[in-house]
Design a protein around this nucleic acid. Structure first.
Length: 418
RNA sequence: GUGGGUGUAGCUCAGCUGGUUAGAGCGCUAGGUUGUGGCCCUGGAGGCCGAGAGUUCGAAUCUCUUCACCCACCCCA
């Protein structure tokens, strides 16, 4: 049987040539998180299936048809994590993190898995940079989280983006609204598109998000969620808007913005960017005050977001933003024979021990060819170890930027390059 | 799951309505005399033309099937 050399559908290889950029972005994220007092949480790649089926909402596509679920030999049903929040909450509960400090602030960089049809900015395995802040009910925390996301993408050089916010209420006021919405929609039911007719039954909120012309028309005059918020939710939403103003963050209110998972309450937000095609949400997040309680722990309010790393990279690419990467080796060692290779080996070793990145060429090729490679690698210095150098013990070091050469005794090489 | 598009060297692509050993640019590699990069010149390697079947004297080119990728719906990061 022939081996299929292609990466599975919806997955990709990040090649050595490209990985420095990704590392830079990840490092940047870690730095910003540190500035905000967040520490990294790493959870397993797979979890017990019930963790997701019980909390993401039984009607969501992610749960009903997109999970990578499998049985172990011990007949336990496990699932590759399709999102990062439920596992984070699980870990929070398992380790009683609420006893360590009143507010738990964690971030993660994780691979997530969803069996979807791949398209621009959508993969079956994708990377998410995420934040979870557990224990604060304040809308100021929501604003802080949003500012973290904004500061992060701006630090990468992204200036063209749009922050959309909304409040989707809580279990007390949302049902009232949904009731009003379905009541309103009833008489238009037959005019709705097929998917909205399904949504009408299963997840009415999502109808507001429909892109069909006729549906948009119908919902133009539909009841507005904002008008149905109870006092608590309303106060919270106003506090959020105010805090964002204090932080000087521009936003637009999008009353049709709905989050995908059932556990969201109050704040929902999204950062959309150009250059991504239809999958234009780089970051999506919100508040989920009831999730932990649903997991059987004492009620604890939380906020967070997830950011698609792949989408972020696509955005950077399409905006023509150059990521500063430094992979330039300091030094390249050119060798000419067995003895010179051995000498090169030990010199390279001592340079590397002193944190001087260096390349040793033992290809046995001509000096010209080695110089060519050295030049292509854009190194600062090239050390040449030829017959002459071995005999005299004085090596030739060429400054590749100025083309000038110097003679340096072997035992002073390290000093010279430090 | 539903539509539409594409599939030729490492990369970006040419190959007209089927006709001999399949091309370019870039990249890679080796040279341009005796131990030296970036420019220039010359040579070389590398493709069962996504895969399978069919039509034909003959298929990269036509037909069917399949797979993969891309784009959109859906969903979402």
């Amino acid at each position: 049987m022939d081996i299929n050399y292609k990466a599975p559908r919806g997955t990709y290889d990040l090649l050595p040539e490209d990985s420095p950029k990704w590392q830079y972005v990840e490092e940047q994220f870690r730095k910003i998180c540190k500035n905000y007092g967040f520490k990294e949480l790493r959870t397993p790649t797979f979890e017990h299936t019930e963790l997701f089926t019980r909390n993401l909402g039984t009607t969501t596509d992610v749960v009903t048809k997109e999970m990578y679920t499998f049985n172990t030999k011990g007949n336990t049903s496990l699932t590759l994590k399709p999102e990062g929040t439920a596992p984070a909450m699980r870990a929070f509960i398992e380790h009683n993190l609420s006893n360590i400090q009143p507010i738990t602030k964690m971030y993660y960089i994780a691979k997530l898995f969803r069996y979807e049809r791949p398209q621009a900015g959508r993969y079956r395995e994708h990377t998410q940079l995420g934040i979870e802040c557990i224990g604060s009910h304040s809308a100021k925390t929501d604003a802080e989280i949003i500012s973290l996301a904004i500061n992060f993408i701006e630090s990468l050089g992204i200036k063209e983006y749009n922050l959309k916010i909304n409040s989707i209420g809580c279990p007390k006021c949302r049902p009232v609204f949904i009731n009003a919405l379905t009541e309103y929609t009833k008489e238009y039911y037959n005019d709705l598109c097929d998917t909205c007719q399904k949504r009408f039954e299963q997840n009415p909120l999502r109808m507001l998000d429909c892109k069909e012309e006729k549906c948009i028309e119908i919902f133009k005059n539909a009841p507005n969620l904002i008008d149905y918020l109870d006092d608590d939710c309303n106060y919270h939403f106003n506090e959020l808007k105010n805090s964002l103003k204090v932080l000087g963050i521009k936003f637009s209110i999008d009353n049709n913005l709905v989050r995908g998972f059932d556990y969201y309450t109050k704040t929902a937000f999204e950062i959309v960017s150009t250059g991504l095609g239809s999958q234009n949400a780089v970051c999506g997040g919100g508040r989920y005050d009831n999730l932990i309680e649903e997991l059987g722990f004492k009620s604890t309010p939380s906020v967070g977001f997830g950011m698609g790393l792949e989408r972020l990279m696509i955005t950077l690419e399409s905006l023509g933003i150059n990521i500063p990467v430094d992979t330039r080796p300091t030094c390249y060692i050119v060798t000419t024979n067995e003895k010179s290779e051995e000498l090169g080996l030990s010199i390279a070793n001592s340079l590397r021990k002193n944190n001087i990145p260096c390349e040793l060429d033992v290809s046995g090729r001509s000096i010209k060819a080695q110089m060519k490679t050295s030049g292509k690698m854009n190194v600062k210095f090239t050390v040449i170890i030829g017959q002459e150098e071995i005999q005299s013990g004085i090596l030739t070091i060429k400054n590749m930027d100025t083309s000038s050469q110097e003679k340096i005794p072997i035992d002073q090489i390290l000093e010279y390059l430090l």
